[in-house]
Design a protein around this nucleic acid. Structure first.
Lengths: 173, 173
DNA sequence: ATCAGGATTGGGCAACATGCACTATCCACG
DNA sequence: CGTGGATAGTGCATGTTGCCCAATCCTGAT
């Protein structure tokens, strides 16, 4: 993962503030050359700093308004196969191998309780899955955000004036 | 939350497949009028089906490569104030009020263990927070995805041919 | 069946953007 | 100092956007 310099951060931050702004407009706003913005955008996409567009799609709008977090306990030796089978369940939209009392923490969405129950049944039917403990999200207290992180980084690296060069202001690492 | 019909789904799905495609290109691909695509896109943005651009920013690229899930136990009567104070911690990038043994499940990122320890200290210092149990993400087994949900919905509502009209094929809800 | 309202279609237009190319300059490193 | 990559500024053919308009379609209510 290539880390970002202040110019990258400024570009990202401006894009968050004005997603529809063209590269030309961003360049003007940030006092950069249009070519620079374009080159940076290409690099941000190719090096993984920008995740795929699908992150923006709201599951609730697709009818999956029920969000739950499922703590899954598995037989470790079957982990690989289990993960493959979890991937085949469309309602599991994220999963992490975690430390702590559970082995996997999955985000599972559904249209309602009945469908969630069905999906949980699918999870439990996977060989090697010993337990699945489900917590329902009752409220989204802090919606997913990254601007707080960007602001933190910009505030930390903002000692080089309004026109920062790359390596002198590399802050994200 | 306004639910989406098949045309919306097809537009979203095409955007996920080709994020850089113009409205004109999408319209051609989907056999729709350009105006229709534009109108639908405006609606998708305004009704919350499309989340803000910042969802696409990868925290790891900002230097926050350590992901953890913090289960927070609180005094219920102080919940409102607690949430406000959690919001003021930039490294908390998501939080849900959940059922189950914990009250709040938070996603906390950091550059490393030391910083995570510091953030945890901040959480614990909030009045009304009784406990905070942290699980580290050791592996992103299933990266966040929504195309699986879209595919599911499209497969479920695909009985009306290649040119679906709105209400006859409303499937998401 | 009729009517009304919203959605969709197809087309137009001025302004603008994009992707790519080019040259010149700057900056960091060996 | 020399070199290579990054940045800046500019140009151009092509395509896009935001907005507008009129006509048609579709759906639900009466």
């Amino acid at each position: 993962m290539q880390h970002l310099d202040t110019t990258d951060l400024r570009i990202l931050s401006a894009m968050c503030a004005r997603p529809k702004a063209s590269a030309v407009a961003l360049a003007t706003e940030l006092s950069l050359s249009r070519n620079t913005v374009q080159a940076r955008l290409v690099r941000l996409e190719s090096n993984g700093a920008l995740l795929p567009f699908e992150q923006r799609v709201n599951p609730a709008a697709l009818g999956f308004g029920l969000v739950s977090f499922v703590h899954i306990h598995v037989q470790q030796r079957l982990l690989g196969q289990i993960v493959e089978q979890l991937k085949a369940i469309p309602e599991i939209i994220e999963a992490h191998g975690v430390t702590g009392s559970a082995d996997i923490l999955a985000r599972v969405v559904a249209s309602g309780a009945e469908e969630l129950f069905r999906v949980n049944g699918q999870i439990l039917a996977i060989e090697g899955v010993e337990r699945a403990d489900t917590s329902l999200s009752m409220a989204e207290l802090i919606p997913h955000r990254t601007t707080s992180l960007m602001d933190l980084r910009l505030a930390a690296g903002n000692g080089t004036g309004s026109r920062s060069t790359g390596s002198a202001a590399e802050v994200a690492g």
